[in-house]
Design a protein around this nucleic acid. Structure first.
Lengths: 391, 391
DNA sequence: AAAGTTTGTAAATTCATTAAACAAACTTAG
DNA sequence: CTAAGTTTGTTTAATGAATTTACAAACTTT
């Protein structure tokens, strides 16, 4: 029951609008910002000068005149601070140090053997500390840590349940905040991936997108009106457990015929083992398909079919503008895409499909880690300026 | 790129907050509003007096003292204006005149024979005109018309596609606005139903709920953070076309094994015809079940199972706090509920289920019409005060 | 009856935006 | 090359909504 209106709120809103334009439309002049936003030149000038004061914006010299005095061009100062992003996987972690624009300054990939919670968090802390120490000197220093994890989180940053890690109820955010004295944001890897794609990938201009992470299981990050949708208890996007066969085989979630029993990496490997007669891993399947092994290619194609079945469900249930397929299985794009698109053509309602794009991720295994870092940046800006929805 | 902050915005926000408390927590004093909202007594006083000025609030006399001067209690003036709500069905329409609190003043139910678009809209206009003419004298008169329709609408109020009516691309909003010179809001019947349940039904205290309308087909209205979610093109909530059997029978939407092929009224009647050997309608099935006909009861129970299958999908995909089952089939609650709950118990993930309620609608066939009327009221208030999310 | 509470209004202050005016810097037409 | 017109960004005064402080009225409690 908070958030009443006062002059403070007005200023925060406008400052955030101005900063937004400096971040996305730069180089840009004060006059142009005033024109775009509808704010007066005086207001923009005053806010810009405060942003320069606080090192978030900088003047980079005059630009081209359009028939009058030359404008002073403004740039967002991405190096005023740095953020840490981590994608905590089941067998490895990918950690990055980025500047405030999301540019990767340094990257560390470390394997782990999925030991105890203590072992893994210890490794996590070491990795983060290393990156913090390599951060260049800057006005704000390292401003926060973002973490994408393969499990369910509540809005307080507790990791409630991560079946593939074997973790339950780990207060990761609190631990890391205590350790580093920095703001920490933790969220599901699919949510982080969705934000990564929205900020840095193919989803830049899309307000409603769904990122489907196809790994051992299937998860989804849902962005609605430029905002992550988490459901009532942080549990939304358990799309892998939408049943595509109500009397199908039993899933560990209790339900029958869940999508991820048919369309995940786990499903692929199981099927491959059965048909090829021996255990295989994803990498070797990809190699075999690449070398033209018809049996393996057929495995991928069948998976593409099942992917399509679930994607049709997503379309009918959420009607996104853009579906981005990511995760480890995205490497099979070459063989997955055709059967998937064929099925969409046949089975999805014409109206929602018209305005829909379906693509595999271009960021590959970086969607999550970049999204995680951008969580930290977003939290930093939210603490100084109120974030307001814009396009 | 609009919506910058200025004094006007501040006032609209605060006025809307004050009005909100007068609407929901009445009777309430100025001092109490100040206490709850954090606004100063002076500000509240000034805003309340403006609301009284514009007839939206009124003083109803002093209340109980709590150790000092007695407070002047305030009430929302629900009779400052009236709204029209219409639930346009496939074979009938239900139209109501409500006051600004949503209280039904008059109600008309009219059968139609699903004739041409012109015939039905003509009937619609006659019905609405009749209600407008019976509206009591008031400060603002009839402030708008809300309409729930069995089809897909875009955000401009065009009815894009209504398969069961056989309508396509009807500019209903424009037509009605021209006819009556009043603001008109048009939306899907399930969306209207969701809002109806949220405002007047069991969903009053719930920010995230899904209303599932089980009629000839199955539709859903999705409320996220107190706001209707429409998807990218107004097409969200086509939950009836989520496939529960990827290799099942073909649906008219192009896909195979859609939920509504198993769990809709249409599915029930078809199955009944097959098993009983003759055509029946829903009413007679309900009567037969009531009189203990085991074969019919078994039909309902099987439907309950299929309902459950889809509800599990909804839980895993959206994680709502509350699922309300409505529409014509809600009349079968008695036989549907048990198998449905049994299936939920067995098949849904424990974590999201813990915080979940699943119930049949108490508003019965009035969810949609009440929601439609409240669309009109909401639009009216949005034009005078900015609407802000509150609980 | 005196003291303390609560309610609601009034007056003075604060502060971010707007509107209007303006100086500086530049382009272009003749 | 000059005069006129444009564009940029700052300065100054005005606006108006909220806050702070003060206060009177109405009431309860001791």
């Amino acid at each position: 029951m908070k958030q009443t209106g006062d002059l403070n709120l007005v200023k925060k809103i406008n400052k955030s609008i101005v900063l937004h334009h400096i971040r996305t439309d730069s180089p840009i002049s004060r006059a142009r910002i005033a024109e775009i936003t509808g704010l007066t030149k005086a207001t923009v000038s005053s806010l810009v000068n405060e942003l320069i004061e606080s090192s978030l914006a900088q003047e980079i010299g005059v630009g081209e005149s359009s028939g009058g005095r030359k404008p002073m061009m403004l740039l967002f100062n991405g190096t005023a601070g740095y953020a840490i992003g981590v994608d905590l996987g089941v067998h490895d972690m990918l950690a990055v140090l980025t500047d405030l624009t999301g540019k990767v300054i340094r990257e560390n990939r470390i394997l782990h053997h999925n030991g105890s919670v203590e072992q893994v968090t210890q490794l996590l802390k070491t990795t983060i500390r290393e990156l913090i120490e390599t951060a260049p000197e800057s006005v704000y220093g390292v401003i926060g840590i973002g973490l994408g994890v393969p499990g369910i989180c509540d809005e307080e940053g507790n990791l409630l349940f991560a079946p593939n890690l074997g973790w339950e109820n780990v207060q990761l955010q609190g631990q890391l905040e205590a350790e580093f004295g920095l703001p920490v944001v933790i969220d599901n890897e699919a949510n982080a991936g969705a934000v990564g794609e929205k900020q840095f990938g193919a989803g830049k201009d899309t307000a409603n997108l769904i990122y489907v992470s196809i790994g051992m299981g299937i998860g989804a990050g849902i962005i609605i009106k430029n905002e992550l949708y988490r459901g009532a208890t942080g549990f939304a996007g358990e799309i892998g457990h939408i049943s595509i066969q109500h009397d199908g085989p039993k899933c560990r979630c209790g339900s029958l015929g869940c999508w991820e029993l048919y369309a995940s990496e786990h499903a692929l490997l199981e099927q491959a083992a059965r048909e090829l007669g021996h255990e295989v891993d994803l990498e070797s399947l990809l190699t075999q398909a690449e070398s033209g092994d018809a049996r393996v290619i057929e495995l991928f194609e069948r998976l593409g079919y099942y992917l399509g079945v679930g994607v049709v469900n997503i379309i009918n249930g959420y009607n996104p503008e853009f579906i981005i397929l990511g995760g480890r299985l995205a490497g099979g794009e070459k063989w997955l895409m055709k059967p998937l698109l064929e099925l969409l053509e046949k089975r999805s309602l014409p109206h929602p499909r018209k305005q829909l794009r379906v693509e595999f991720s271009q960021l590959r295994d970086r969607s999550t880690v970049l999204g995680a870092a951008s969580f930290a940046v977003a939290k930093f800006f939210a603490s100084t300026t109120v974030s307001v929805d814009r396009n």
